[in-house]
Amino acid sequence: MTPITQNPPAAVPAQSFRPSMLWHALPWALAIGIYFIADGYHGLGTNIMIWILFAVSLDLALGYGGIITLGHAAFFGAGAYCAGIFAIHVNNDPLLGLLVATLFAGLLGFITGMLILHTRGETLLMLTLAIAALLYEAANHARWLTGGDDGLSGIRVAPVLGLFRFDLWGKTAYLYTLSVLFVWFVIAFFVVRSPFGRSLDGIRQNAKRMRAIGTPVWWRLVAMYALSAAMAGTAGALMAQTTRIVGLSSLELLTSGVVAVMLVLGGERRLYGAFIGATIYVIVQDLAGAISPFIWMFVIGFLLIVIVLFFEGGLMGIIDDVVNRLKGRGRKDQRS
């Protein structure tokens, strides 16, 4: 079991200001700074932020909830298809579409969560896989609605709030995605520090004991799973709205795998791990993919093996170790 010390000590009230809190501004300052300097790379930046959102959603279910899943693409894809279909057939307002897709994915997470969350381990893994596979097959065969393996195209999105048109260079898409990511991050940040989030820490570490002290374990897991699914749905919807196309690959096993890889690469159960993991993954994919699409698979595969075997906390864990060493105290001292 992972020691509880990975979370910030609960004794410190969240309100009191400490200089170290300024670190929280860093990723956002970077994101805004990049907006002004990265001409021509706004599309890549948007893509990275969408994957960050997806990886944070997985962190909620898998990292904090301890729900072992290989089917999170189900919610990503559901959100993407829902947003795309909603924009084509009902209304092309982006925020409305985002809301509908988020609710749809959340509802899907709630229903499937109620069905499968009494199981554990490999069975749960297989059930999440089966759900994603079911949706994949459904999307593949409902050609009239989803476009099948040609993908869903022809999505036209109205200006955000009626003011900001999605431009050719993706600047609007960048800021739009950044804002949505920020809202979801704040929600996630407070949820994992709430009593509800704490009870999930307990469930992950010893579900029997939590049940014994009267925690409704199953409901807590379902709630977290639904929240995580809704967030993944938002990520999918953003993908649909900013790229204007939804492919079957959004529901693939590979997509579920890739997002888990990002999360663990960065370090699970820290929210920011998803930021680092997704950023590095997408950039490596972009750079190595330019040489050969298979070099990035080799690099990522190799990184995964090394990280799992030698650095269990992911890249954020390595950063923590280095910082602690610079401060002259090892992790062990911190623990005691």
Binding site: A260, V261, V264, F298, I300, G301, F302, L303, I305, V308
Partner: peptide
């Protein structure tokens, strides 16, 4: 994750 990594490699 490690076994997915092996698949990738």
């Amino acid at each position: 994750l490690l076994t997915i990594g092996l698949c990738f490699v």
